[in-house]
């Protein structure tokens, strides 16, 4: 079964840390080749949902997921699915730039190499760096350490590293929150460029950023009663920001709380 329009479907997703339910009953469909933004106040579970999509939550002891994450009709939490395989197809960019303490070249090439890439590595590295809009800045110093770059460059290096293994979806967990406004803008431009080839899901605290870059927006909030995060509203970004149907969404985006 290959559902053409959706890259990811979340069905009754519940996330637990030990016995605490951090996220409850999320149902969401992420469209292919679109940018979907997750917004909401701190502790609302949006990062947890994001990490559930490529099974990064598995790495946290005591974390557990119930419900389904459908990727091409396949439930990623099926026992037959290997999380390593999932992460290879659904890449991730983190909040703080975290290049490997290796050369710029090696940062991009490493993921491809361990995943058995047999083609021309130089070409792949150049192409990935070009796609991440970093090539012109680093082409003369490919063998310097990735840590010698500025924060914004490091984050684009991380994006180049993620796309070098040709994932289908890229998850970004507040990718610009540690960067200055100019570097942020570059990352946002880059995302608009990348979405032509990839599906992007981004978690952000910055509502203007969500409004600027995303096609769809999901608003999450913590339920006061059981402190579990839940999906309040999910719609096209324009609708969410101009004409939200839920009162809580409106309160949040107009700055009345959060």
């Amino acid at each position: 079964m290959n559902n053409g329009t959706y890259a990811i479907e979340l069905q009754n997703l519940n996330c637990y840390y030990e016995t605490f339910r951090a996220v409850k009953d999320v149902n969401l469909q992420v469209k292919r080749n679109r940018i979907t933004a997750f917004i909401g106040p701190s502790g609302c579970g949006k990062s947890t949902v994001l990490r559930a999509i490529n099974r990064m939550n598995d790495l946290i002891p005591g974390a557990r997921v119930e419900g389904q994450v459908l990727f091409k009709g396949q439930n990623l939490y099926d026992p037959a699915v290997d999380p390593v395989e999932v992460r290879r197809r659904i890449g991730m960019v983190f909040q703080k730039p975290n290049p490997f303490p290796k050369s710029i070249y090696e940062n991009v090439a490493w993921g491809a190499r361990i995943n058995g890439f047999k083609g021309n590595m130089d070409e792949l590295v150049e192409q990935s760096l070009r796609e991440a809009a970093l090539w012109d800045e680093v082409k003369d110093k490919l063998h310097q350490s990735g840590l010698s770059l500025s924060g914004g460059q490091q984050q684009r290096l991380c994006i180049a590293r993620a796309i070098a293994i040709r994932p289908e979806i890229i998850l970004m967990d507040e990718p610009a929150s540690a960067l200055d406004p100019i570097a942020t803008l570059k990352i946002e431009d880059l995302m608009r460029e990348l979405v032509k080839n990839y599906t992007i899901i981004i978690v952000t605290h910055n509502m203007q950023q969500a409004a600027r870059v995303s096609d769809y927006t999901a608003f999450f909030m913590m339920d006061r009663a059981d402190r579990a995060g839940m999906l309040v509203e999910f719609n096209e970004t324009g609708k969410i920001f101009t004409n939200p149907t839920d009162r809580r969404t409106e309160d949040y985006i107009t700055g009345r709380f959060g």
Binding site: L59, G91, N98, P99, F100, W110, G111, I114, R161, A162
Partner: peptide
Amino acid sequence: VPQSLRQASMGLGATRWQTIWHHVLPS
């Protein structure tokens, strides 16, 4: 060794062993 290094490696589809051998141990 920063947790972010392990996440970066695992996020690229590396196995736990590859993460340890290529990133954790050298650091």
